[in-house]
Design a protein around this nucleic acid. Structure first.
Lengths: 223, 223
DNA sequence: CCGCATCCTCATGGATACTG
DNA sequence: CAGTATCCATGAGGATGCGG
C-alpha cells in the first residue's frame, strides 16, 4: 500500500486516528523539541539552531516550515528579522508534552551524563513536574542556573515558569542543573524554606524525587 | 558534536531534559503506535504487523526489542507463542498519549480520507476524548464497528473502554468509523438515548464535535 | 502459520559549506 | 543572520527467505 507522502518530509501514517494524525504533524524528529524551545517564548532561527545543538540548519529549516504549514508555529517579522512563535493551538501542546515529561521523569533521575542542558528547558519542565500543586498566598522562587534566571511561580491556578523575567523575585536559589532538572533538592528546599505548609496537590513526585537541602539560597531580601 | 548512538537505532538527543529522554525511548517512528495497539491488550507479532499496516517486519522487530530493553513492553511466552504486552510503566503512557490525541482531535474532524482504521484504536481514543466525564449510575455502551465490538463505560471513576468483552452490553450501537472516531454522532446519541442527564464533566468536545443522531441503535434488550 | 533475518532501494537525517 | 545547497551515512519500506 502506498503511503501518502507529504512533499516536506513527514510521511503520513495514513491512519484514521487522532494520535496518528497528531504524530503526522509533530511526530518527526526534533519537532517536539522545537516546540519545547518556543514554549519559553519566541526565538530566532539561529537561537533555535544554537539551543538545539545537533540539529542541522537545513533540517531545522524544513521542520519549521512543516510546523508553520500545519498551524503549530508562525513567523513573526520583528524589527530585527524573523521570530518563530507558537500559535494558540501550538501552545496547547504544553499539556501532552508535560505529560510525556512526567512519564519520563524516572529517566532523568539517573543524572546528567555529559548531556547538553539549557536553562530554558526548565520553563515547561518545572510546572509539568509540579502539576497539581497550588499555593496561597503565591510562592515565587528563582533558580539561577548556568547564568540564566528561571522563575517558578505557584499560585491558586497552579505552577508556571518563565525565563529572564523583568524583575528578580525576592528568593533566588543557585543550583546545578542536576539539582533542578534532575528533580533533586530544589523543590523540597523551596517547599521547606519558602512555602512551608503552603503547597497542596500532587507533589508526590517531589517527595519521592527530591533529597532535601542541596540547593543554596543566594538571596532572600525584604520579607 | 557527536550524537550518542544507541546500537539499536534510536540516536539519542543527548539532552538533560525529561521530554528529550522520553523521546529517546518512545520518540522514534512507530513506537507510540505500537504502544497504542498494546493499550487494548497484548498482541502477537503478526497481529501487530497486520494492525500497523505499513510497518516493515524488520523495523517492527527492531522497535519491539528497543521498547523491551527500555522497560516499556515485555514479552510473555504464552501457550501459542510470544505475546507482547505493556509493562506497568508502559501503561502510564496512556496519559500523555491521550493528551496528544486530544490535542490532535481537530485533525480527525476533516474525516477519513481513505485512511486505515482499526476498531482497536478506539480503546485509548474514546476515553481520551471523554476525559473528565463521569456518570452515576454507570453508563455502558457498545459500538459495533467493522465487525468488532468496542465497549465504552463511564462511571464515577471516568471513562474506560475495551474491545471484544466477555459479554455484550445491553446497548449496542452500529456506526461507521467516521461516526465514532471522527467524533460525530455516536457520543451525543449515547448521551441522549442512554444517559440523558447522567454525564458530567468535560464533555465540551462532544458538544462541539458531534452532530446529533447519525448512529443507529442495533439492540437494546432487557432494560 | 509465527517470528523474525536478509536484501535491496530510496527517502530522510546529519555535517559541512556556501550564499542572499 | 537566515537560511539554501551538497554530499554521505543511515533508516524506512517492501519483498522474500527460512527455521521452528
Amino acid at each position: 500500500m502506498m503511503d501518502t507522502v507529504n512533499p516536506l518530509g513527514s510521511r503520513s501514517y495514513g491512519q484514521f486516528c487522532a494520535l496518528a494524525r497528531g504524530l503526522d504533524v509533530v511526530g518527526d524528529r526534533w519537532n517536539l523539541l522545537i516546540v519545547r524551545e518556543l514554549l519559553a517564548g519566541p526565538m530566532r532561527f539561529n537561537e533555535l539552531k544554537a539551543s538545539l545543538s545537533g540539529a542541522a540548519s537545513n533540517l531545522l529549516s524544513s521542520r519549521l516550515r512543516h510546523l508553520e504549514e500545519n498551524g503549530v508555529i508562525e513567523r513573526r517579522l520583528g524589527d530585527a528579522g524573523v521570530l518563530y512563535a507558537l500559535t494558540p493551538w501550538g501552545m496547547e501542546l504544553r499539556e501532552p508534552m508535560e505529560a510525556l515529561g512526567r512519564w519520563a521523569a524516572p529517566l532523568v533521575m539517573t543524572g546528567r551524563r555529559g548531556d547538553l542542558f539549557r536553562p530554558r528547558w526548565l520553563v515547561p519542565a518545572l510546572p509539568g513536574l509540579l502539576r497539581g500543586a497550588t499555593a496561597s498566598p503565591p510562592v515565587e522562587v528563582g533558580f539561577e542556573v548556568e547564568g540564566s534566571l528561571v522563575v517558578l511561580r505557584i499560585d491558586e491556578q497552579g505552577p508556571s515558569a518563565e525565563i529572564q523575567p523583568d524583575e528578580r523575585p525576592s528568593t533566588v536559589l543557585s543550583a546545578e542543573p542536576e539539582i533542578v532538572v534532575g528533580l533533586v533538592a530544589g523543590g523540597l528546599t523551596v517547599q521547606e524554606a519558602v512555602a512551608e505548609g503552603q503547597l497542596h496537590g500532587d507533589v508526590e513526585v517531589l517527595h519521592r524525587a527530591f533529597p532535601p537541602g542541596r540547593a543554596s539560597v543566594m538571596s532572600t531580601p525584604d520579607p
